[in-house]
Nucleic acid binder design. Structure first.
Lengths: 212, 212
DNA sequence: TAGATTGTTAATCGATTAACAATC
DNA sequence: TAGATTGTTAATCGATTAACAATC
């Protein structure tokens, strides 16, 4: 599809471009130059042009970029024109917050099932979904074929459940556990969110004096 | 303190080193070589030695590193031997989950106050803390001097509240909003967690075929 | 046309990996 | 002492920035 291998650094900037372009669009911007966008985002114009040119030629010399057009292109690159069916494993505090808080549809996903082991939670409703028993996981996957899963379960359970899910055809994980999925499975897509590590990084920033 | 400026890439690996060393310690490891640690973590031995040598000489030729000793050193570098007083702004789904879910004490922080605007939430207890009205924020800060804040509030409220907090002496933010704090305030420590962007990145990984 | 701004190549900068002398 | 493994310098690789010809 895309030209060469896209570097991770570029990929991580794409959602932010998409967000900023959405805001510009809402504020009535029709066109924007790489220089102006760079200023707003705290990047360099060069970097922005390099990033976009990984995927194609979206601008026009002497004019700049059409805001809506560019936003749409980046949305397509990000796969936001499709919705991958996704399930959530673990409906504890964090799992429930994520299920309730995020706009899955606008981020390329459709949350279609929630599973937990805790009998107190099973049956409870979150948005339009009921929390199911994990015993129903296999049957559910056979019927609905989720392709992605959110892991909000204890670390000890992660390895076992991930194996199961992969065998049921899940090939993408949004991983909130400290289980190192990617080390074990090079072939699945993994996006890690390690909140504890993130907080620890902030502690470093406070306690070191090379604040820059 | 530390030798030169430490690169961001190194800093982001520190919490993970700390975690792995903790696990090794729990599993009875006394010593470990950079080669063995590299294998376990999916890094190179070279990188590990380079990383550690940013901060000092923690190993011994011919022996390797003492697991507990190294863990302690990295803990000190991360500031985990202190606890920075921290408050949470926004006790919605996500804010409550974070307050309940994370082990602040072992990550260099002490969560001492929770604030919200929603009357339905005020007075509710989370762990050992009661949710306070945001009206009490200034008085609380004057009395307890929190130095760090978690922002789990709507984007529109973020700018105003961040300004206030900075004027009350808060100089570090764990930012879950899409408000670009760092663009406005170069002098405060900011750690961003953009869950939406993270999910969007996963969407890219699924929909692109340069899976690597 | 003249001015602006892209797409793209070249230069720089930084981070990772390799190599090896120092030393436990 | 011999073997192992560090700390550190040098080489490589990749990402960012600068420059500029192409072109709208």
């Amino acid at each position: 599809m895309s030209k060469n291998a896209i570097s991770n650094s570029v990929i991580r900037r794409l959602p932010r471009y998409y967000r900023f372009l959405g805001e510009l669009e809402n504020n009535g911007y029709i066109r924007i130059s790489s220089r102006e966008l760079a200023e707003k985002m705290g990047l360099t114009a060069s970097q922005i042009r390099q990033d976009f040119n990984c995927f194609g030629e979206f601008g026009q010399q002497g004019y700049g970029y059409n805001v809506s057009g560019l936003k749409m292109e980046i949305g397509k690159i990000l796969g936001l024109d499709k919705q991958t069916p996704m399930i959530l494993l673990g409906a504890g505090n964090l799992g429930r917050a994520i299920a309730a808080h995020l706009d899955f549809k606008n981020r390329g996903f459709d949350l279609i099932g929630i599973f937990d082991t805790n009998p107190d939670l099973i049956g409870m409703e979150i948005g339009e979904l009921k929390i199911n028993s994990i015993d129903q996981l296999e049957a559910f996957c056979n019927e609905h074929h989720p392709e992605a899963a959110i892991l909000c379960i204890p670390k000890e359970a992660a390895a076992v459940q991930a194996e199961k899910l992969i065998s049921y055809g899940v090939h993408a994980f949004w991983n909130f556990t400290h289980y190192d999925l990617r080390l074990e499975h090079k072939d699945v897509a993994v996006e890690n969110v390690h909140l504890g590590d993130s907080l620890t990084t902030l502690s470093y920033c406070i306690n070191s004096n090379d604040n820059k």
